[in-house]
Design a protein around this nucleic acid. Sequence first.
DNA 1: GAGAGTGTTGTAAC
DNA 2: GGTTACAACACTCT
Length: 282
Amino acid sequence: MPELPEVETIARKLQLVLPGREIQSIEQLHPKTLHGTPEYLLGQTIKQVTRRAKIIIIHFDNNFSMIIHLKMTGQLIYLDKKIRVGGGHPTTDWVNQLPSKHTRTVIHFTDDSTLFFNDQRLFGWLKIMPTAELSVVFTLLAPDVIDEQVTPEYLASKLQKRSSTIKQLIMDNTIMAGLGNIYACDALNVARIHPQRPAKTLTLAEVTTLLAASKVVLQQGIELGGTTFDGKYVDIEGMAGQYQSVVRVYGREGMPCLNCGTPIKKIKVEGRGTYFCPQCQL
DNA sequence: GAGAGTGTTGTAAC
DNA sequence: GGTTACAACACTCT
């Protein structure tokens, strides 16, 4: 479920609490989730936590790193009974009852704090690898949507000969990284572009508007701490995001378009549920 | 109870 | 190379 804003929110909060902590042990509760050799990280101290695309990177002192992808249902919950990150927010009860049946990996730190990786559907993963090899992973990924490198001209050049739908291509990691289904739907609504337009039919002006809209919705998503439907996405304290309170179209079938009041329609685009306004998205 | 739906992405076939 | 369908999996909703 998490898209760029959700992953960014998690990475920022981890960066507040993890640097300086030393790994005591790593518990594997499911064989599918953890890749690489956990022993390389035992006794090692966390230097920094960053994000690239929808991947979280935990950098260690010994030039190893752990990279984490949450895929659809992954969660990272940090539990330190002595410290609260969020400035007074109460931790939800279930957080205090971890591990749950969906906890796949548990990282114990020497100060008795704990990082839980929960993942209902088992698509997500953690990988331990030499920091020097990170670039190999990331060279295959296009720059983030909110990166300055992604300009209207860059995006237009990637789209100009493509017959696929514009919605599919703005979610394509090899073109630009960060938009998933929710923010892609919203960006298209803000830009007033129909999700099923063949990409090559967009004018440079439309690409410019769409890219600006994409950056705006992702930025707003980050400011609001991500999007939470059904309590599935939560931050490292188990707290929900707030973007859903301002969402333009995603999940709003039958409700009025915020631009023109027309009821939002739901269709399928390349197999994904897609919401748009039939009146103002052409 | 069967079947479709879910916020991701990699792969394989055409 | 681009496009498309489907697979990985567990759970909820119709």
